[in-house]
Design a binder for these strands. Structure first.
Length: 641
DNA sequence: GTTAGGG
DNA sequence: CCCTAAC
């Protein structure tokens, strides 16, 4: 909070100097997007949030970046905040999602506060949730306009001395949002050479593993026309809603102070960040997170010209500013466990700071031991492996870094101190997944296994597990502005699921930024992949993988309940599912609940893998019986008293 | 930690 | 499957 207080103070100062009607919000833009804002509000009505002060949402301008993805509905963009150049008085729109950036932008040419702001910047980052910067979906209006100009980004004018990015509002070509950043000062924040338009922070600050069921992701639905689309979404939508809204909102509250610049030019400290989050989340609810990430980054990818070839990404196109042809990413295959790593260096802009950009194509999962009956099905083997991997990734892993063959153990060292600089061949850079604490391997038994030959799998076949590592190192300026190209990794993936991890970084320690894992082979509905190394203050809890009950499991459950009755779920668990680590007694209770429900509805209404009617009949019988028993017991107890 | 029930 | 209240 201290940082925000400082920011607010500075904002006040800035305002006093610039409290003039020069802050003119582009009202046409406002109108253009009022529909969107309205959708936000509509969406919020059905959304369980106590959001108020809707007005400020409508005052924001939204820009939708046309993207070159298959689905032009979903666009990467940033909130547009009306901004003015303090000195020129020109009204320009700076795409940024936080007051912090706006202040920074405002002070691009303010040399007086330069240093001050820099400090604040780095401080504030620690508290900034960043998750608010997820991509947004074009919710209303037809999409033809977007389709008509899918390459707008490529036409970004590049002027010497000024980094200019053009955001085109697809809903109104007459009001392009311009970012005009002076080349000095704070532009170092963007000094990876990435176009501003690519600085979609959602890519970097909401590390996500996403699973993609294409059937679910055919496009963005429109809340305006499908007000209940959220409810009808698959569990993914449900997951997104809950994960983002519920989990992230907790984080949001940690730093929900933002400064709202309204049309009258006043900066108002308000508490609406949370609302934004909700709104933005809400507005995206009908877009699977993975796709959102993809779209969010797609413009980056496209604008940067990354191509995929044989599972390895490389960039035939140099960055718009500085990449020399020779510095294009290299392929590498390290013994240390990285299948390939694309290291990618970019020189800094004139500010002089520099950073290293790395991309790890994939990690190998370290040793994994699995024991499974010979009679087990391939499907159960897969699940078992998945369990093992999930358990491993769920917290038993850490990242190891080696450089030039030597293991780098001192986490406090900067990249520079380690000898990693622009001049280095980043081929020498290696990452490993290591067992975190316990030297013992995760050992997993398949359900119902008794004594069976064990199958030891080293270098688990979960492959390719894609982990995207973003170097933050000691370069504060990177932070959220560095582009991540998750979309590259997941574009062909069909088995990834949204999975946030906590990106909070301890003060003074910046080890890693984000990690993405995208196993591809899980056949069943893989909802979430546990992320690497949950942060200590991990407010974001992982949703478990959804694993539909098999008929065998249902059978076992029914049998146990018949014997033990309802209400003794722990016993049921021990009796019938003791070997199924992933089935908790709550799960069994829930399953019974749904079984009872399923048994009561007509077969036509049933979904999912059909449960034999015989089992359902038994469910009803058992349920009725034990309900009566319970009634009797309570009646007896009551009569006694 | 378990159980029950709503979401 | 999650979350929470109640025990």
């Amino acid at each position: 909070m201290r940082a925000f207080d400082l920011l607010a103070t500075i904002a006040g100062k800035i305002l006093e100097e610039n409290r003039n009607p020069t802050m003119t919000t582009d009202t046409s833009s406002e109108q253009d997007h009022s529909g969107f804002a309205k959708e936000c509000q509509n969406a919020n009505k059905s959304f369980k949030s106590e959001l108020s002060d809707e007005g400020s949402c409508g005052k924001k301008c939204f820009s939708f970046l046309s993207s070159q993805t298959n689905n032009p509905n979903c666009c990467s963009e940033e909130f547009l905040h009306p901004e003015i150049d303090c000195h020129s008085g020109l009204a320009s729109i700076v795409t940024s999602s936080s007051f912090l950036e706006r202040v920074v932008a405002n002070n691009l040419v303010d040399s007086k506060s330069h240093n001050e702001m820099e400090n604040i910047t780095s401080n504030a980052k620690l508290d900034s949730p960043g998750y608010a910067e997820v991509s947004c979906c074009k919710l209303d209006g037809d999409t033809s306009e977007v389709k008509d100009e899918p390459h707008r980004l490529e036409n970004v004018p590049i002027e010497s001395g000024t980094k200019t990015c053009c955001f085109e509002d697809p809903s109104d070509e007459n009001h392009p949002a311009l970012i005009s950043l002076d080349d000095n000062a704070k532009l170092s924040m963007y000094n990876d050479g990435t176009p501003c338009s690519s600085l979609s922070k959602g890519c970097g600050t909401v590390p996500v593993v996403s699973r993609d069921d294409d059937k679910n992701f055919s496009g963005c639905s429109h809340p305006s026309t499908k007000p209940k689309s959220f409810r009808s979404m698959t569990n993914i939508g449900d997951r997104i809603r809950k994960t983002l809204a519920s989990k992230y909102s907790k984080v949001a509250q940690e730093s929900k102070v933002d400064i709202c610049s309204s049309c009258d030019g006043d900066f108002k400290p308000t508490y609406h960040c949370k609302k934004y989050c909700y709104k933005r989340q809400r507005s995206q609810m009908n877009i699977p997170l993975k796709k959102r990430k993809l779209f969010n980054c797609s413009s980056v990818l496209n604008s940067k010209g990354f191509l995929r070839s044989g599972g390895i990404y490389y960039s035939p196109v140099n960055d718009m500013s500085h990449n020399a042809p020779g510095s294009s990413p290299r392929r590498m295959r390290e013994d240390c466990g990285i299948e390939s790593l694309e290291a990618h260096q970019q020189s800094a802009l004139q500010c002089g700071s520099s950073h290293v950009k790395l991309r790890i194509r994939s990690f190998r999962v370290p040793e994994l031991s699995i024991e499974i009956p010979e009679t087990a099905t391939i499907g159960s083997l897969k699940r078992t492996v998945m369990d093992a991997v999930a358990a491993l990734l769920g917290g038993g892993l850490r990242i190891g870094v080696s450089f030039q063959g030597k293991k780098v153990t001192d986490d406090s060292k900067t990249l520079l101190q380690t000898g990693i600089s622009l001049d280095n061949q980043l081929d020498a850079f290696g990452f490993t997944l290591e067992h975190n604490s316990s030297p013992s391997l995760p050992y997993l038994y398949a359900a119902h296994s008794s004594h069976v030959p064990s199958l030891e799998i080293c270098q688990s076949p979960i492959s390719p597990a894609v982990i995207h590592w973003r170097s933050q190192g000691s370069f504060d300026m990177l932070h959220e502005h560095q582009v991540t190209n998750l979309g590259n990794f997941v574009e062909s993936d069909h088995d990834s699921a949204p999975s946030p991890i906590n990106t909070s970084v301890d003060k003074g320690r910046k080890d890693y930024k984000t990690l993405y894992t995208v196993p591809e082979m899980i056949e069943e509905e893989l909802a979430m992949i546990p992320m690497l190394q949950k942060s200590k203050r991990s407010e974001i809890v992982q949703r478990r993988i959804r694993r539909p009950f098999s008929v065998d499991e249902v059978e076992a459950l029914v049998q146990a309940v018949e014997k033990l009755g309802t209400g003794r779920w722990r016993d049921v668990k021990i009796r019938a599912f003791d070997n199924s680590k992933h089935r908790t007694y709550v799960d069994l209770k829930d399953k019974w609940k749904t079984l009872v429900h399923t048994a009561r509805i007509s077969p036509q209404q049933r979904r999912g893998q059909p449960v034999p009617q015989e089992l359902l009949d038994r469910v009803l019988i058992a349920h009725t019986y034990w309900s009566q028993q319970q009634t009797k017991v309570t009646a007896q107890t009551a009569s006694r008293n």
